[in-house]
């Protein structure tokens, strides 16, 4: 994938992840205050937003729980690394399981009440899942571009 595309991909993920701290930005730029409830509602579609699971930064709460934040952080960090060192390998299925199983186990054990919810554990397992999922996502993007090129070439007489 072109260098410029990789930067655009990183920027898109960056803006989505930055939106988690919209309340913090609203404190700095009061005009944004008008949008806080609507942006929060937007993030509520992709996170339960249970207050005890949210992350607090400078007394302002994030719009997603620590596990979701871990997932987005994994995505963001790997998208950043990917700008300079392009990830070219085809991720095996095992990698998905390695990313998914810790998050699944943590989630199930907390739900069963075997131990209490830990933001650090949720964040870390989310991060593992986010990084593994990014590899699949990026590989898919590369293949999508390749498919599109193939179709374009086939159309040329």
């Amino acid at each position: 994938m072109k260098f410029s595309y990789r930067i655009i991909l990183f920027l898109l993920i960056f803006f989505w992840t930055a939106g988690i701290f919209f309340e913090f930005f609203a404190e700095e730029f009061p005009l944004l205050l008008n949008f806080v409830p609507f942006v929060k509602k937007g993030y509520s579609l992709v996170c339960h937003q249970q207050p005890e699971k949210l992350v607090y930064i400078f007394n302002t709460e994030s719009f997603v729980c620590s596990r979701c934040m871990g997932i987005y952080s994994g995505f963001l960090i790997f998208a950043f690394i990917n700008i300079f060192f392009e990830i070219k390998f085809d991720p095996p299925f095992k990698l998905f399981l390695i990313g998914l199983i810790p998050a699944l186990i943590d989630s199930v054990l907390v739900t069963l009440g075997i131990y209490h919810y830990s933001k650090a554990a949720a964040g870390f397992t989310g991060f593992l899942l986010g990084t593994s999922v990014f590899l699949y996502f990026y590989r898919s993007m590369i293949e999508l571009i390749a498919e599109k090129r193939r179709i374009t070439f086939e159309k040329i007489p």
């Binding site: 299925f93 998905f96 699949y136 996502f137 590989r139 898919s140």
Partner: peptide, 11 residues
């Protein structure tokens, strides 16, 4: 959709 396709293909 993108991630799902890649997971299925990797399997």
């Amino acid at each position: 959709g993108l991630i799902g396709a890649q997971i299925i293909n990797s399997r």
